[in-house]
């Protein structure tokens, strides 16, 4: 299926958000996630099914003002 990850379109077969993170090499990285602009807590990622057209955001701590 076709999804968008951090603004970039990509193909994936990952059935869940957790599987997508593994596929993309995040491993145990300190990241937070949202799907279609709704926050998805880390504990929910294994149950968060991905669907065609989903927009996934993966963010991490950064400098800020």
């Amino acid at each position: 299926m076709k999804i968008t990850v951090n603004g970039t379109a990509r193909e994936t077969t990952a059935p869940t958000l957790d599987a997508l993170l593994q596929e993309l090499g995040y491993g145990a990285a300190k990241v937070a996630t949202a799907v279609n602009e709704d926050f998805v807590p880390a504990a929910i990622r294994p149950e968060q099914r991905l669907n065609d057209g989903d927009r996934v955001e993966i963010v991490a701590p950064r400098q800020g003002g």
């Binding site: 951090n6 603004g7 993170l21 993309l24 090499g25 995040y26 491993g27 990285a29 300190k30 990241v31 937070a32 955001e57 993966i58 963010v59 991490a60 701590p61 950064r62 400098q63 800020g64 003002g65």
Partner: peptide
């Protein structure tokens, strides 16, 4: 003050 920003797989800048 800090923020959150997009991170690529394997980047590990956040950590």
């Amino acid at each position: 003050t800090v923020s959150v920003r997009r991170e690529a797989g394997g980047e590990r800048a956040g950590q």
